[in-house]
Design a protein around this nucleic acid. Structure first.
Length: 290
DNA sequence: TACACGTGGGC
DNA sequence: TGCCCAAGTGT
């Protein structure tokens, strides 16, 4: 009897999976949600220590909700995209206000939470609650692009189509579907990587359309690379770092010191204030949000 | 759809 | 050295 793609990936996962804390049996829905938000665009290696510290300090949504948003931004440290910290804090308050402090399990309820989009809602529903939902992230899209379509890269996301393609691969059994979802993500993270894929270790080597085609170089539309040096994003990071590193409010002079070009500096500071990442005190100094 | 949004490490 | 990449979301 021929195996399925899902069965092959799941069998590989059983022996190759990393031991990650958010996959432990004692990781509840809140822990899974925290891990998923931290893992948005941030590598596992850097998430690990922040995740542990975060859950020790805020083991429940209610615990986080009781503290100030600035505490979340500071604890976020240098994980990057600090708006995620603000949203996770708002998420905790929403869970308390609208769900009695319990992470909801329905997709539409999860989707309504701040910072929770299509990927994270499905990941929490599947991994924390064991529900049968397709989970689509960049790893999954790359594995499908290669194994199914024979393309070297996934190209720009097409949400509806991506979801349909993964749904087509999803085992009918709920437990198997969940194991498959986490397994494909792991395969994309460890073997079917963006650069230097380890095809020799891949459980799908025999059925991979990309491999059969001789692993042709990708020629489709490319995702526009993100620049960083010299952008507003870099300036925002430098400004916020001043607040994060210091114990309390700082002067405008201290902020001005991190970027010499005044127009861009002003724009970045204004954006941070607008985002709620920074708060301006009556005395003119700046602080993390209360 | 395309763009903005942090940070650090690999090559 | 710079460029590319890492479990996305919101607008």
């Amino acid at each position: 009897m021929p195996t399925t793609l899902a069965a092959d990936v799941t069998a590989w996962y059983a022996r190759a999976a990393r031991d990650l804390p958010w996959r432990a049996p004692d990781a509840g829905p809140w822990a899974v949600l925290v891990s998923e938000v931290m893992l948005q665009q941030t590598p596992v290696r850097r998430v690990l220590p922040a995740y542990q510290a975060w859950l020790r300090r805020w083991p429940t949504p209610a615990a986080l909700a009781a503290d100030e948003p600035g505490d979340a931004v500071r604890a976020w440290g240098k994980l990057g995209y600090p708006r995620r910290a603000l949203r996770l804090h708002a998420c905790a308050r929403a869970i308390v206000a609208e769900h009695g402090g319990t992470v909801p399990r329905e997709l539409d309820e999860l989707l309504a939470l701040p910072g929770v989009g299509s990927y994270t809602a499905r990941a929490v529903a599947a991994f924390a609650f064991g529900l049968r939902h397709p989970v689509v992230d960049t790893n999954v899209r790359r594995v499908v692009a290669r194994a199914v379509h024979g393309r070297g890269e996934a190209g720009p996301p097409a949400t509806a189509r991506d979801l349909a393609e993964v749904t087509a691969l999803l085992p009918a059994d709920t437990g198997e579907a969940v194991r498959f979802s986490v397994a494909v993500m792991e395969l994309g993270a460890l073997v079917c990587t963006a650069r230097g894929p380890r095809c020799g270790e891949c459980p799908l080597i025999a059925r991979c359309a990309w491999n059969r085609a001789g692993r042709p170089e990708y020629s489709g539309p490319r995702v526009r690379p993100q620049r960083f040096a010299g952008t507003d994003r870099q300036v925002r990071g430098l400004l916020l770092d001043v607040l994060r590193e210091g114990p309390g409010p700082v002067t405008r002079t201290a902020l001005d010191a991190v970027w010499s070009e005044p127009v861009q500096r002003e724009r970045a500071l204004g954006a941070l204030l607008a985002d709620g990442l920074i708060h301006r005190l009556p005395d003119g100094r700046y602080a993390l949000p209360r």
